[in-house]
Nucleic acid binder design. Structure first.
Lengths: 132, 132
DNA sequence: TCGACTGATTATACACTGTCTAATAATAGA
DNA sequence: TCTATTATTAGACAGTGTATAATCAGTCGA
């Protein structure tokens, strides 16, 4: 992954230590962290960082298209560094969220929905992850 | 729709006035109300009803399979009287949620997901509802 | 160097969601 | 009627996310 500072610069966001801490965590995360998860991590690198700054930064990253935001879990929005189109699988037992590559599923019939102009869509699957 | 009292009796839930008010609203709703929406309505019929009772009743209805629960909107869970399998369309401008009949979309490729045991799934579409 | 301006950060307050608790009220059954 | 169970209630509580006002940091020009 490119380093946090260049990523921020590239999007015309001033790379402050607080924002770097947030970006470093959230953009390389394999899980789907909540804002609070991000705050916990960021405080390790930057103990004085406030909740407001984390929310501000996350919202900024989402606005700029660097970060996805998903409302598939109860209680809190989760963030997703994968900004390619993809689907999601939620493990009902652990709450873990996994990405499903876009081309592994095909959704047919959208074009027949006359009342709706579909801008984006995804499949949300729930169940158990098989032990490997 | 069957009347609220018989529905409750049928599920071995005592039909108190509070529960009747909740059931009458939520089980005939065409929108996808939040718990707070239900509370507002229920207070019209039953002004002393408390928030706890509304949550208790909604959770009970979900447990008993009379009501669906969806986490597709930010901020609050929404409830869905349609317990048949179906998909959802979210209007990005209004936040309104519409049901999409199950057989209007087809999802192919699930069986190839070797790491996951899919128990349920749905397609979530977002965009604009066309004016009719 | 100084001061002023801009932007970022901070602590805190706020509104809201959802759960829990302890006390009270209503109900059913003997 | 008395008792045991179940429901309801108000309020406390923990958590999420936004808004605000004050402070802080950095930049720019004189």
């Amino acid at each position: 992954m490119k380093d946090a500072i260049s990523i921020l610069r590239q999007c015309d966001i001033q790379p402050t230590p607080q924002r770097i801490a947030v970006v470093e965590y959230v953009l390389q995360s394999k899980s789907h962290p909540s804002a609070d998860d991000v705050l916990s991590y960021a405080r390790k690198k930057c103990p004085t960082i406030s909740r407001a700054t984390v929310y501000n930064t996350l919202n900024l990253l989402v606005e700029r298209g660097l970060l996805g935001m998903q409302t598939i879990r109860e209680g809190a929005v989760v963030f997703d560094p994968n900004i390619e189109r993809h689907h999601h699988f939620v493990d009902n037992e652990t709450g873990a969220i996994y990405d499903i590559p876009w081309d592994q599923l095909e959704v047919k019939g959208k074009e027949k929905l006359k009342d709706f102009e579909v801008v984006e869509f995804q499949v949300i699957l729930r169940g158990r992850r098989k032990k490997t």
